[in-house]
């Protein structure tokens, strides 16, 4: 009984979110805010906000010149946003230290 009520509740929740999602642009639509730079000729240009100077367009066009790697994502996470990845490694390090502090074993007395 309780479980069926929960299932119905979350199904309603999923339907509500699907209704919201159906109002977005389709996947790969150039009008999406996450879209990078390519604008096909069939879409009138006034529908598309100015994306030619977005940071994704800059990364796509200039990462080979700025960084030298051909993988744009590696260039972004390791060079343009290098501080982010450095502190991300620090976060991982801190998490391991926290795990060892919680459940770790003392290996110094062996």
């Amino acid at each position: 009984m309780k479980r069926s009520v929960a299932v119905i509740l979350f199904a309603v929740f999923a339907v509500c979110m699907i209704v919201v999602v159906l109002h977005l642009y389709p996947v790969g639509d150039p009008r999406l805010p996450g879209y990078a730079d390519f604008i096909p000729a069939e879409i009138p240009s006034e529908e598309i906000p100015r994306r030619a100077d977005s940071v994704a367009t800059y990364y796509n066009r200039n990462s080979a010149r700025d960084v030298g790697g051909t993988c744009v994502i590696a260039s972004v996470i390791l060079d343009y946003r290098g501080y982010d990845t450095l502190y991300e490694a620090t976060v991982l390090f801190t998490a391991v230290i926290a795990c060892l502090a919680l459940i770790g074993k003392d290996h110094h007395h062996e």
């Binding site: 990078a36 990364y59 994502i73 260039s75 972004v76």
Partner: peptide, 8 residues
């Protein structure tokens, strides 16, 4: 080209 920022 895909947008590299969500992937990163």
């Amino acid at each position: 080209m895909i947008n590299p920022i969500p992937s990163a």
